[in-house]
């Protein structure tokens, strides 16, 4: 456990997935990697597999079709992992709250699977890249 805690102090590898989002937060996540914000200088790196990730960046409200996949990805991520809920949709399902296809905000869905899940909420539609960086850093501080 201590080794894992230690690992969070260094470079954070993140896996990004979008569960019924509007694409905007996804683009803003990519925006973080481009020269203006360039989070790779802090060691935050986008990886291709959840098995390599320290943190999951989840954009969007969760719909019924994406829910089993989200849980599958969460199970594959090594624990302890940080889950970052991006945007209003990730935090509270936002404007899509009343829709028939939405099964609930991200925290509700994940807490059914794992009650101890650690979630950072970054509200905004879409959150500004500066807010995203701050959110991730604060989340790491909390762990």
């Amino acid at each position: 456990m201590d080794i894992l805690k230690k690992s969070f102090k260094k470079s954070i590898w993140v896996f990004h997935l979008s569960t019924a989002a509007c694409n905007n937060c996804d683009i803003e996540v990519l925006e973080l990697l481009t020269p203006r914000y360039d989070v790779e200088r802090f060691g935050i790196k986008l990886v291709g597999s959840p098995r390599h990730a320290d943190a999951l960046l989840v954009c969007g409200s969760v719909n019924a079709h994406a829910k089993p996949r989200l849980l599958e990805v969460y199970r594959q991520t090594p624990k302890p992992c940080l889950v970052v809920a991006f945007g209003s949709c990730g935090c509270s399902s936002g404007i899509f709250r009343d829709s028939y296809s939405i099964v609930g905000p991200l925290d509700k869905v994940l807490k059914e699977e794992d009650p101890d899940v650690k979630i950072v909420y970054i509200p905004g539609c879409p959150p500004k890249p500066e807010a995203m960086i701050e959110g991730i850093v604060m989340g790491l501080g909390a762990i």
């Binding site: 979008s18 569960t19 019924a20 719909n63 079709h65 996949r69 939405i102």
Partner: peptide
């Protein structure tokens, strides 16, 4: 995976 029922 992205259906949100916007029309409804």
């Amino acid at each position: 995976y992205n259906h949100r029922g916007i029309e409804k």
